[in-house]
């Protein structure tokens, strides 16, 4: 190659390399820029819960544990004594647990049926589940309130549990159905040939294979119950039955401007289970999302 061409080629390679780096930088930069607000917001939550004042959003100053005192003592505001936190946590636990149990039981059964049995109404049912998403939540809320009121269930934790579970079940069923679909028919057939009843085959052979799916909807259900706000806010009137979501909501009105530290600490405390689940399940969740969404 002549000298000239060599230089030209070298230059264009260099140019190409620089361009590549530049483009990569822009891409990373843009992604970071878009994600920055989220990072800052959550960083603030952590920082504010342990510092008196927070500078410029997330630089803590005056480290203190005072914000976390609600864990072991009552908070006084004027003459009002705020309720202790632990019964409230228990309420949230009950709601979350209840939703999980109900949803798992019902979704597992239904998901399997939709996946396996040659049920004559399979397709329309599937369509129904998707169409259900079209129903505005507020419509359901008013009617469910009326229904629960007639049953005398308003102002109980059960009302929130049932309502939330009922609304989560279609999605959960669809999700677990995807998992059931992925189980090869041969395994089941083999079990049936070996003399198992349909039920036994399902229980002993198929279920263990879809364990990741069960775990997935269990987590979703638990989080759905833990995070639930509207139902609790609307159905529960007795202050002893408030879950954490309603408690934090009321704190926002009371403690903003006065004690951000306490507010941030309580909010962060409330956020712990979702955050923990979130971190633990990152990889698994991604996989699940891909598998589940693939559909029939």
């Amino acid at each position: 190659m002549s000298r000239r061409v060599e230089i030209k080629v070298k230059r264009s390679i260099a140019y190409y390399k620089v361009k590549k780096v530049l483009v990569k930088a822009v891409i990373y930069g843009t992604l970071t820029a878009f994600t920055l607000p989220i990072v800052i917001m959550y960083a603030w939550l952590f920082m504010q819960s342990v510092s008196e004042k927070v500078l410029l959003g997330f630089i803590p100053s005056n480290f203190t544990i005072k914000g976390w005192r609600f864990l072991w003592q009552s908070i006084k505001f004027g003459e009002v004594i705020l309720p202790p936190i632990w019964p409230i946590v228990l309420n949230s636990l009950i709601i979350a647990g209840g939703v999980t149990i109900i949803e798992i039981s019902i979704a597992l059964l239904a998901g399997y049926a939709l996946s396996r049995l040659n049920v004559p109404y399979r397709e329309p049912l599937l369509l129904l589940i998707i169409a259900l998403h079209a129903f505005p939540g507020i419509t359901l809320l008013i009617a469910i309130f009326y229904l629960l009121n007639s049953l005398g269930l308003i102002n109980t934790l059960l009302s929130v549990i049932i309502a939330k579970a009922a609304l989560e079940i279609p999605m959960g069923t669809w999700l677990i159905k995807g998992f059931f679909d992925a189980v090869p028919w041969d395994i089941e057939a083999a079990a049936l040939v070996d003399g198992c009843s349909r039920l036994k085959a399902w229980y002993k052979v198929v279920l263990p294979i879809v364990k990741p799916g069960i775990a997935a909807i269990a987590i979703f259900a638990f989080l759905a119950g833990w995070n639930e706000f509207i139902f609790a806010f609307t159905f529960i009137l007795d202050h002893r039955l408030y879950p954490l979501s309603v408690h934090v909501y009321q704190l926002i009105g009371e403690f903003r401007y006065i004690d951000y530290t306490l507010l941030a600490a309580t909010a962060l405390f409330y956020c712990i289970p979702p955050l923990v689940f979130f971190v633990i399940t990152q990889k698994a969740f991604m996989k699940v999302a891909l598998v589940g969404v693939r559909g029939a």
Partner: peptide, 12 residues
């Protein structure tokens, strides 16, 4: 990973 996840959940 699924096992770890499950354990984590139960521990929590």
């Amino acid at each position: 990973p699924e096992r770890a996840m499950l354990i984590g959940v139960i521990l929590l």
